[in-house]
Structures are given as C-alpha cells and as structure tokens.
Design a binder for these strands. Structure first.
Lengths: 102, 102
DNA sequence: GACATATATTCACATATTCGTATATGTATA
DNA sequence: TATACATATACGAATATGTGAATATATGTC
C-alpha cells in the first residue's frame, strides 16, 4: 500500500470515527432518515448534527435528497457497515484478552 | 446501540484513522515487526512512530514483546483488517458513483 | 564500566476537530 | 407576503491530535 492509498483510507476511517457518526450510520443502516430523525439519536444541537452529516456526505458514505422541507439521508456505502461490525468483534477480542491476563 | 457502545467503537476507529497507522497495520498483517521495521514504511521520525504504536497498543489492536534490544509488535486483533479492506471497497464505490455523475 | 543500538518520554508548538450560539437559507402554507 | 418549520453556515472557544528536537531508558557487547 502506498502513502496516497493510506491517506485515502485513513480519511474514510476518520469520517466514521466519532460516537455520534457511529450512531448515525447504525441508524441509517435501518433506512433513510431526515436530519431531525437523526437528531433524536444523539444529545447534540441541530447544527452539530448537520455538520456530522456533512462530514459523512463529503466522505461519500452518505447521500441526500430533498423531500419538501426535509433533507433525507441515505447510506450510499453499506460496505462501511462492515467496519462497524468489525469494531464490535475487536472490542470483544480486547476484553477477552484483558480478562485472560487478570 | 447506546452511547457508551458508540464511543467504544469510535475510539477503536480513531486508533486506525491515520495514514501512518493504516500503513503499519497493513504491514503487521504480514507478520510481526520491530519499531525500526515499521519506521521504514513511513516518512516519520522515530518518536512519532513510537507514539503511533503506543496508540495502537492502548487501543488493544497491537501487542508487543521484547526480543533482545528490540520490541516486536504483533497484530492482536486481525479482525481490524476487515475495517481496512472495507475502506478499499468503499473508496471504489465512491469513485464509481462520482464517475457515474460525470 | 564504556559504548553502541533500540525504543520511549518530555516539551513546545502547529494544526485539526468539535461544539454551541447566533444567524442565514430554503420550503410550505395561510 | 407573513409566518412557521427544517436545515445550513459563520464564528469563536475549548480540546484533541500530530510533530520533531532533545533527552531518557533499556539491552547487548567489548
């Protein structure tokens, strides 16, 4: 892997690497959602949610379409869900190892 | 998914989300490596490499053992490689979508 | 013990990220 | 056009992250 490739991958991972965005992607995996829908998930202000979504859009993970006054968001890269499920497995593995040491 | 779970997952993703650490994990997927081995991959100083490794260790993704004067690093969480391969697929998907628009 | 090699830590600084408040924009409806 | 609702952007402050230079620590060899 070269440097440019590594940077592109790291940028994609960064786009995921925030608790609020993790929650958002998990929710979007169950269907398209408006900004307000997603806002209810996280304890954050509306502008904050809007910016997190913008980040996901810029990374190309999420797309949007306008329906009346709302902007509906769609998970354009379902493959990124694998990265999420993979963190769950990793967490289990880390916990298990720590338990073995103790 | 609750907030604590989302934070734990995001922390794990953050540990991966840096070009140098992406390169390191890719290299460690092919076998255990010393700090100096990994240093050759990335254009960074020795202290910088050391701290990136520390970050991976604290996240539980990498373990270390001392062999003589060297510290050998081992990928303890091969499951995290899925997150890496998944970014490759996502990058392809994003590029394809952009090409379709153009 | 003196010295070379391998790795870690401290420090100071630059940059990036995240956030809420305030404000602007877009859309629908009366 | 006036008003309400949904979403986006600008701004400034707090915090986190990344970095190299200098230095400290650990290990092996002579």
């Amino acid at each position: 892997m070269n440097t440019a490739q590594a940077k592109a991958r790291a940028d994609l991972l960064k786009a995921l690497a925030h608790p609020t965005r993790v929650l958002m992607l998990d929710e979007l995996s169950r269907g398209d959602r408006s900004v307000n829908d997603l806002r209810r998930l996280a304890a954050a202000s509306q502008p904050t949610i809007s910016r997190h979504l913008d980040r996901l859009k810029k990374a190309g993970i999420v797309t949007e379409r306008r329906v009346g006054p709302r902007v509906i968001h769609h998970l354009a890269c379902p493959c990124m869900l694998q990265a999420l499920s993979c963190t769950l497995e990793a967490l289990k593995s880390v916990k298990k190892r720590q338990a073995d040491i103790v």
